[in-house]
């Protein structure tokens, strides 16, 4: 139920962001994770308070599941003074360390080693922390992906690296990204375990993630999980993604994670139509209030431009 709620909440926030973007009220573009919600939602639900995360572009449910609010997300996208980064960064570059969530930088692959180091520190402090870093299929081609996985393997750092394989890196299909059969097989090269799962099936991905996290929490070492999914919109809203064949989208439309989640829960009689409707209404209400509030708020004062580059000693 919690997982389903996170997926729906993230979907509705993304939809609202797309609307705000279309209205021309957002600087830059909106980057949606529509179609990929099950993976991050599963991680959020399976995680413990002391765990650490490096979310990437399409992990809104992780942020929400770790305590970020829709209001914070809207403020961030709009560059408001009260946003998690105070308007100094935008779109998906946010996180709160008190939620265990690192603020990403754009450089793909560069955050994996950051979580690895964070987990090392927490473990030294006696916590049973595990880390989860998210990357796309495209980011697996970076040197940083390799360096960080090898580094984590050498030091037995309990870090799960999840590859959300959504078949495209911007416009580049996986055929131009790598030659291996499955990215999960790369785990062998690092001497760690590799897993594959259906990233659009909430029950399957949840159980997979939960089991891996339990395992590496008890037996510290990294793991690699490749989750199959599909980016159902452009790279960002500026992108018409005409390069994605309609037939492929068709396949994944039928396998929408929210629909799959609802169907599964209905089959197991875990949820009623009334409950779904109530959930949707409650989510819509919060999103509407949050979006309006964020839209009405101020950007940071220009005079604060040069403040806070350094931490005072």
């Amino acid at each position: 139920m919690k997982l389903l709620r996170l997926m729906i909440q993230a979907r509705r926030v993304d939809e609202r962001l797309i609307k705000i973007c279309r209205q021309g009220r957002l600087r830059g573009s909106a980057f949606a994770g529509i179609g990929q919600e099950a993976i991050s939602a599963a991680v959020a639900v399976a995680s413990q308070p002391d765990d650490l995360f490096a979310p990437c572009i399409r992990n809104l449910p992780l942020h929400l599941g770790r305590g970020e609010t829709p209001l914070g997300v809207f403020r961030q996208a709009l560059g408001r003074a009260k946003s998690p980064t105070g308007g100094r960064d935008g779109n998906v570059h946010y996180g709160r360390l008190d939620h265990g969530v690192y603020t990403m930088i754009s450089h793909l692959g560069s955050m994996i080693s950051v979580v690895a180091g964070g987990v090392m520190a927490k473990r030294r402090q006696g916590k049973d922390t595990v880390g989860v870093a998210f990357v796309g299929d495209g980011a697996t081609s970076t040197g940083d992906f390799h360096e960080a996985l090898n580094f984590a393997a050498v030091f037995d750092i309990p870090l799960l690296v999840i590859i959300e394989n959504n078949h495209y890196a911007y416009s580049t299909p996986t055929s131009h990204q790598y030659r291996c059969h499955r990215l999960a097989d790369r785990a062998v090269g690092y001497g760690i375990d590799g897993y594959s799962a259906d990233g659009n099936n909430p029950a399957e991905i949840y159980i997979t993630v939960r089991d891996i996290l339990n395992d590496i929490r008890a037996n510290p070492r990294p793991a690699l999980l490749e989750a199959d999914t599909m980016r159902m919109r452009g790279h960002g809203e500026h992108d018409d993604f005409k390069y994605v064949p309609e037939t492929l989208l068709q396949v994944y439309r039928r396998r929408d994670p929210i629909r799959m989640g609802i169907r599964g829960m209905q089959a197991a009689k875990l949820i009623t139509d009334d409950q779904i409707e109530a959930m949707e209404l409650e989510i819509a209400d919060e999103i509407d209030r949050s979006a309006r509030q964020a839209l009405s708020e101020e950007e940071p004062l220009a005079d604060t431009l040069t403040q806070g580059v350094y931490r005072d000693a």
Binding site: L52, L97, Y102, S110, M111, I112, S113, V114, V115, A116, G117, G118, V119, M120, A121, K122, R124, Q125, G143, D144, E147, A148, N150, F151, V154
Partner: peptide, 23 residues
């Protein structure tokens, strides 16, 4: 000692530094 991975070495330092360590 670490592997020959300058980027991972500095990335890990950021991770440690933000979690109460001084690398």
């Amino acid at each position: 000692d670490t592997p020959i991975s300058e980027s991972a070495m500095l990335g890990a330092a950021i991770g440690m530094a933000t979690q109460g360590m001084r690398p």
